[in-house]
Design a protein around this nucleic acid. Sequence first.
DNA 1: CGGGGAGGAAACCGATCGGTCTACAGTCAG
DNA 2: CTGACTGTAGACCGATCGGTTTCCTCCCCG
Lengths: 183, 183
Amino acid sequence: MTTTPRDRLLDAAGELFYREGVGVGVDALCKAAGVSKRSMYLLFDSKDELIAASLDRRAPDYEAVLRPPDGGTPRERILHVFRAQDGLTGQPTYRGCPLVATATELKDATHPANAVARRHKQAMTDFFAAEARTAGAADPDTLAAQLTMVFDGAAARAVMRAEPLAGLGVTTATALLDAAGVV
Amino acid sequence: MTTTPRDRLLDAAGELFYREGVGVGVDALCKAAGVSKRSMYLLFDSKDELIAASLDRRAPDYEAVLRPPDGGTPRERILHVFRAQDGLTGQPTYRGCPLVATATELKDATHPANAVARRHKQAMTDFFAAEARTAGAADPDTLAAQLTMVFDGAAARAVMRAEPLAGLGVTTATALLDAAGVV
DNA sequence: CGGGGAGGAAACCGATCGGTCTACAGTCAG
DNA sequence: CTGACTGTAGACCGATCGGTTTCCTCCCCG
């Protein structure tokens, strides 16, 4: 057995919940994963826990796509994130930032998946803050919060497909970096 | 009869779909509106049409809250939108921009409610563009797209409650206006 | 007074929801 | 071989889904 039922469940959940929303039923999910409901409920306490676990599983891959390779200036490293995002938003399968989309769908701030989303989003802000600090920005925390906001805004625009202007996130982040004196 | 069944349905739908998501059932919705399912399905072809119609109904009120009063400089008029948004995001009942949230939940870009959301969002961008043009910005369309993106980003941040910094939308919009030479 | 339309209450439809449970196949250790 | 363990298939539970239909009440107009 190359993949465990747990792996298959998390992978199928990550894809289906992102593509069709968390309203996808447990039956359809288990069928897609090739796992019986019985096994699913032995592995996870509830569908809600599975949502949270699948988001936690998906997040590292998401971050890996966005994170810049080693080296380069802080400015370039930050802009790499927005360029990578631009590549994602151009795809027809793009449904927004998975973290924000899940939080938006779940509404309930106490949902376990919401804590997962918050944690991984904070990691992105922390990355921006560390780079901004390295670059000697006057207020790295505020700049990091602004950049995260631009990231989420670019994702939202892409979802609504009211985005005739590609690279909007990159140009806006550039403007903020300029304003913050990050060369 | 002070309110028609149609009005009660649209109002209840606007509130419930925003507060709990479009997954709310037709039964619960009709009960909240004090309207029978029979009447609902005589007034609307389907739940999807009701979602679209309720969003269309809600949008003018939403815009009225954000739109600045007559007068003032373009810069002040633009910043008024972000200050008004800041007031909304501070409320515990805030669940994000209704237009973006609906589009995010529905996934399907061909859903009638998605067209409604796009149209109203475009109206906001058009407002920004008109003000930027009045102010003599070099590229008013790009600036308007950036401001809309910041607006949606601020909404997304507020949803996730990873928002220790109030007024983030206002300060970021200010930075973009400064960069675009809109005094 | 009598008739017709509007609209509420609720039964009903097949399908699906999240979740539980039984039955059985395969695989390992002893 | 036996017994424990893991896993699938799928029936089953009550509830709810979107949507349709029947029935009845009310009110307005003639």
